[in-house]
Design a binder for these strands. Structure first.
Lengths: 210, 210
DNA sequence: GTCTATACTCAGATAGAC
DNA sequence: GTCTATCTGAGTATAGAC
């Protein structure tokens, strides 16, 4: 279960790590405190020295994810500079690579699964989905595309539409990717789809050279 | 809880209906047999006259969903006729309306939520997602677009790409729609996004009249 | 097909010794 | 901060009377 070098971790970190593993496989309700503490190697009662209750573990996990996800989007104040120096293609491909790096961290992959599993049971998970992930990403892209349009690097479609057309397919392709990974299945086809999508988008929003 | 006119239902149907309600809110593991039977109005032991165990209830639900979802896609043998009589726009808009009707049935909406909640815990749920929903829809669209292209009604892009570009955004927009509905929030914006996407797609794959 | 009664396991959580 | 011990309730499921 790839939980090897946990020796250096504090008990609290171990609890979090084990909980992330288990919650991402069975969901919050499907995992017992007993199971968590057994895997951590402490007694059930000891867990309550680190977390008020089981729920607080999940809250911590969401909080960590939120922080982690926020690192994916460059701060607005750097956007002007980034965009003036980039082509649309470079900008999008770099964003795609950032995201790939993000989800290829095993912990992040599990965060996403927990979010999917819990997003109807936990209002906070829905909030993260709707606000941080969807709105956050779309808003960011809107700003970016607006600047690209101003610089004449992109066709002047409505930025909302552009952001949606670019990002919504990637959301569901990522969901599919994550499912395939869970089963250890081949992901090359869906990865190719993501790249094809980016190219298709680029061809339609930048001037073609014919 | 909109469980009013259950008088005519058989006990088995009531169990299914209540289970669908509860599973779609709290997930399979978050719901107890006790809770189900309490809401149905029978004793726990009576449930086992209708289902071998709790797991079998979920399997039944998935089985019903599968059947229900399969009704959404017209059989392949009618495809030629449908397409020869339709414009691409009519075809896509009719498909969109079919889907809208489907997800606006409260039971179907709950089916989708259960699928989302359970798709990392239950291999069957993943299978339905990957095979029935994603692959089924994409394959269908590929066939359809291929015929449209043959008839000269659509630009000759690779059909796989066309199907992905059309359908993947709708998957995630629907996921967002379903989340918003769960919270009773306004869905007009995301519905507009779906329509805008369809129009955007149409403009780019059919010949424009300028 | 429904009930009562019951079995047995497991859940989350706490008190208090060390 | 960890342990032992224990509580209380909830979990799934079965046997057998009606």
């Amino acid at each position: 279960m790839q939980t090897n070098l946990t020796e250096k971790m504090s008990t609290k970190e171990k609890i979090l790590q084990v909980s992330i593993n288990l919650f991402s496989q069975k969901g919050y309700s499907g995992v017992s405190v007993r199971e968590i503490t057994r895997e951590v190697g402490i007694k059930e009662s000891s867990l309550y020295n680190h977390f008020k209750n089981k729920e607080e573990i999940l809250e911590s996990i969401f909080s960590i994810f939120r922080e982690e996800f926020s690192k994916l989007v460059p701060p607005f104040e750097f956007l002007d500079e980034i965009i003036s120096k980039s082509t649309v293609e470079d900008f999008l491909l770099r964003g795609y690579e950032n995201f790939r790096t993000h989800i290829n961290h095993p912990v992040n992959e599990k965060f996403w699964r927990i979010l999917y599993i819990e997003h109807y049971r936990e209002p906070l998970a829905r909030e993260i989905f709707l606000n941080d992930i969807i709105k956050g990403t779309i808003d960011f892209l809107e700003s970016a595309f607006e600047k690209f349009i101003q610089l004449g690097k992109m066709k002047a479609y409505p930025t909302k539409l552009l952001a949606s057309e670019y990002q919504y397919p990637l959301f569901s392709m990522h969901a599919e990717y994550n499912m395939l990974r869970f089963d250890g299945k081949d992901t090359s086809e869906i990865e190719q789809k993501m790249k094809d999508h980016i190219q298709f988008f680029l061809e339609h929003v930048t001037e073609t050279k014919n």
